[in-house]
């Protein structure tokens, strides 16, 4: 097997250039998908027969919640690669994920509270899904605090990577919390028994928002990764052409 691609991904100048090339290819489709999803979700989709127009919070809540878990999984996977194969670029990816992930975890929690108040009658309950999502936010904060608290970069990378990988146990808990326990939170309603449970004019905007948020994350991650790679390369010869 040809492993040159793997080594290429470990090479900071290659990653710096590649991330720069990829950024607009993620960013513009993200803008298009989010704008189309917003129009579809706020204007075209019919009101829900139970929740009226209140259900439209789903178009920002579900993509944020999806992103929070997806970013954590990305961070933990990158941290794992960094730990096992001692790949510095992988640690840079993990470090770049944390801040974005914390933001969208917070957004998913607050938009969920704003949805819960009119539908459940309360902003917050210590429900399994909600509690697991709050723990996810604390994991992101813990990861960032740990990194900030260790001066030596290599040690910060390794210690925070262990935390990220151990915290991965929370991801299936978030995913299955609504099945394992009696949760007030509804079960996933995009697909059930292989069929969509929503009419198409509600579902398509949701899928567009999920796609748009995912591409958005990829674009922002590329920019952050370039910054992180530059910060880690103190005296490399390629830096001269990179910043010109």
């Amino acid at each position: 097997m040809d492993w040159t691609w793997f080594h290429k991904f470990g090479s900071p100048p290659h990653v710096y250039r590649l991330a720069g090339v990829l950024t607009p290819w993620f960013a513009w489709p993200a803008v298009a998908a989010i704008l189309a999803g917003l129009y579809g979700g706020l204007v075209l989709a019919p009101p829900d027969y139970q929740q009226g127009d209140g259900f439209r919070i789903i178009y920002v809540h579900a993509p944020s919640a999806w992103l929070s878990v997806m970013i954590y999984a990305t961070m933990a996977a990158a941290a794992f690669v960094g730990l096992v194969w001692r790949m510095k670029v992988a640690h840079a990816v993990a470090a770049s994920c944390a801040g974005i992930g914390a933001w969208f975890t917070a957004v998913s929690l607050v938009t969920g509270m704003l949805w819960g108040k009119p539908m459940w009658g309360t902003y917050w309950v210590w429900d399994p899904r909600l509690t697991a999502q709050l723990i996810l936010l604390l994991l992101f904060f813990g990861y960032m605090a740990l990194r900030a608290g260790i001066d030596d970069l290599g040690r910060a990378d390794r210690a925070s990577a262990v935390l990220a990988v151990v915290g991965l146990v929370n991801v299936p808990i978030i995913r299955f919390s609504v099945d394992w326990w009696n949760s007030i939170h509804q079960a996933p309603s995009v697909m059930k028994l292989g069929r969509p449970t929503m009419p198409m004019d509600m579902l398509v905007p949701l899928l567009l928002m999920l796609l748009g948020f995912t591409l958005y994350f990829a674009a922002v991650l590329m920019v952050r990764l370039r910054a992180e790679v530059l910060r880690r390369e103190r005296n490399a010869s390629w830096l001269k052409e990179a910043v010109l």
Partner: peptide, 28 residues
């Protein structure tokens, strides 16, 4: 309930772009 939720999501989308771009500019 709905507009604050949308406003917060929009804020997160904008802030993360600004933060990332500033970080890259500062590193360069």
């Amino acid at each position: 309930f709905l507009w604050p939720a949308y406003a917060l999501a929009l804020l997160a989308l904008v802030v993360n772009v600004v933060v990332a771009r500033r970080a890259l500019q500062a590193a360069r």
